[in-house]
Write a protein that binds this DNA or RNA. Structure first.
Length: 104
DNA sequence: TACTTGACAGCAT
DNA sequence: AATGCTGCCAAGT
């Protein structure tokens, strides 16, 4: 039984909520944990549908390059970066996160 | 109902 | 290193 669609978001949110504080994960990582490996895009879509006041730590999700996927200049982008730095996550000079600091 | 787009990732060139 | 194509699946037009 696949019963995807309605279930997918819930699985993604759960996977994201499982990310420990002060750590980040890639979309692919979340997708895999949500049981939809290789469907990283689905993760982005799900996060995009999250309400602004959600309790899901969506900001801990970045792309495989260790960068924030949101367009620079957008409010969400700034918010995400600020939250990450707030958790002790360091950004490189190009705005890249050192995924090495988490063992990636 | 069909086609295109999208908070991505991986491989090929 | 940079660019392009393909795969994933749902949502928007």
């Amino acid at each position: 039984m696949q019963e995807y669609a309605p279930d997918i978001n819930q699985r993604i949110w759960r996977a994201v909520a499982a990310i420990p504080e002060g750590k980040v994960t890639t979309y692919g990582g979340v997708a895999q944990k949500a049981g939809i490996a290789r469907a990283a895009r689905r993760v982005g879509l799900a996060l995009r549908g999250l309400p602004p006041d959600t309790s899901i730590p969506w900001h801990r999700v970045v792309n495989a390059q260790g960068r924030i996927s949101l367009p620079e200049g957008s409010v969400s982008h700034a918010t995400q970066r600020e939250r990450l730095e707030s958790e002790g996550i360091g950004f490189g000079l190009n705005g890249k996160i050192d995924l090495r600091q988490f063992g990636w």
